[in-house]
């Protein structure tokens, strides 16, 4: 395939990835959300809220329009294969072009602000916009995953440094549990609950946040290989749902609809627990590109 053709096909594929991510919640997320939403008593503020959420999910898909007007930070995770004849530079340029087109088509809002001038960057392309993380892998395909993470939920993300005296949180899993639940409490409904947590135990200030977001790529059904973390993930959801914060913070039974926890090594001197909060509008999708760079399957 010649370079020009490759570029066009790549742009089309990434554009479709963005469209689908912005307009359609993945099936595993819908199932999990609906499962918890059903727990709400009928004719309550909470049930009213989740009904509108469900209606919104249907409507966005039908209209192929953004689920939420905050189309968020675009986080691309691209696992590429060097033998396929396309460089990360070329992939990056195709992704940027796809972002520009997606913005023109209204799949994305003009959502990128220059932090110094305060001016809106209408193309949605600028420093770290979109954010792309490449990783080389051995097999002959490209896997590209995308998360759209809005500002409301990003703002309630938080990093704790243990020990944390006010919560009697020490440097162990019990300490981690305490601060994670505190993050849910502090968030109240502001991250558009019910939320879903990506957590990283360990790492440093930056790798902790990166890993906490990477946790959000795991399918709902993905089981944590570490029994103690698997247990903690369940415990967090159960306990958080006893706080009574509920959908949008209106009060109710559903505050969290999932939690995924990973870990990184740390230095002896630090013990960070980093929490990324994902709103109910949990937009993530992933595609596998065949050797001709068309989409061969969806990951979620």
């Amino acid at each position: 395939m010649n370079k020009e053709k490759t570029k066009t096909v790549l742009i089309d594929s990434f554009l479709e990835l963005i469209r689908k991510t912005s307009a359609e919640l993945p099936p595993d997320i819908i199932t999990a959300l609906t499962y918890y939403a059903k727990q709400e008593d009928a004719n309550t503020k909470a049930s009213w809220a989740v009904e509108l959420m469900e209606e919104n999910i249907k409507l966005a898909k039908e209209k192929s329009a953004p689920l939420c007007q905050d189309t968020g930070s675009l986080l691309f995770y691209v696992d590429y294969h060097s033998g396929l004849g396309v460089s990360t530079l070329e992939l990056k340029s195709a992704i940027q072009k796809a972002v520009i087109l997606a913005t023109e088509k209204g799949y994305l809002r003009q959502n990128s602000i220059n932090s110094i001038t305060g001016k809106n960057e209408p193309s949605n392309v600028g420093p770290s916009h979109p954010h792309i993380l490449f990783e080389e892998q051995g097999e002959e395909f490209i896997d590209a995953r995308l998360i759209l993470k809005g500002g409301g939920c990003e703002n309630v993300g938080v990093q704790y440094s243990l020990p944390h005296a006010p919560l009697s949180a020490g440097r162990d899993l019990e300490g981690a549990k305490r601060v994670i639940l505190d993050a849910v409490l502090q968030a109240q409904g502001k991250g558009c609950s019910p939320g879903y947590l990506g957590v990283c135990i360990g790492g440093d200030r930056s790798s902790g946040y990166e890993e906490s977001k990477r946790q959000l790529l795991r399918a709902v059904s993905d089981e944590n290989p570490l029994p103690e973390l698997k247990h903690l993930e369940q415990e967090i959801v159960e306990m958080a749902n006893q706080l009574g914060i509920g959908p949008m913070g209106f009060g109710g039974k559903t505050t969290l609809f999932g939690c995924k926890i990973g870990h990184l090594n740390r230095l002896p001197a630090s013990f960070f627990v980093t929490i990324s909060y994902m709103c109910w509008s949990y937009r993530r999708q992933g595609m596998r590109l065949a050797s001709d760079f068309t989409i061969s399957k969806w990951h979620y």
Binding site: N56, P66, C68, G152
Partner: peptide
């Protein structure tokens, strides 16, 4: 008045 966050399509309709 609290609207449902994230319900962009229901609300824009």
């Amino acid at each position: 008045l609290h609207a449902i966050g994230g319900a962009a399509q229901v609300l824009s309709a």
